[in-house]
Amino acid sequence: MLLKTEHLSKIYNRGRPDELTALNAVSLEVHTGEAIALCGPSGSGKTTLLSLLACMSRPTSGQVWFDGKSISRLPERFLAALRRDHFGYIFQQFNLIRDLSVIDNISIPLLPGTLSPQQIRKRGMSVLEQLDLADKAKQKACQLSGGEQQRVAIARALIGNPQVIIADEPTAHLDHSLTNDLLNILSALHAGGATLLIATHDPAIYHHPLIQRTITLHNGSLADLLAP
């Protein structure tokens, strides 16, 4: 079992008038190599759950286990190291740094690590080749098309060889053919052994044969657990 949560709750602005329970006692398990879609209406807590699973924030109560280790109370530097070494994150808005070149953009996650600049560059180029972007390496991120930006964002998520790839509404800004491209890339990654967690509204994703399991959130609670 790769990821596990137990009675996971997240309350924003606790103790203030605008207190809001975004997640309520969510318990779930994710196995190595699974591909899971996370569905639910807007505001149901998908992004909140993903950020907890991806070690970006800490729960108000409950526990998250990664690889058998509780991570919910880890100091920030250890959470950051986990994010860097085991998770790849694909954001809804790509989140590239506009006036940095493609290769520099995707190198960012590895800079604080122990690899030398040459090793980082080599890894970056191999990831770019994998995604058909090698010829764009020196171009600035803001000069790319939407589809290319999306692939750069994926390249950045992949550069650390992550065990888990987490995507938050990756197709929200993409047209039909780009969505297909993305799904092909994700399928290839899944075939390569990666665990996928995708939050989405898009039927094209959760009906795709790649997805083995769908988890639905409603007002911060799990609605049901469906087998594929």
Binding site: R14, R58, T60, S61, S72, R73, P75
Partner: peptide, 13 residues
């Protein structure tokens, strides 16, 4: 309070 995950504890961290 090392066991707490309150916002206050986060601010202390």
């Amino acid at each position: 309070d090392g066991t707490s995950s309150s916002e206050q504890q986060l601010a202390l961290e």
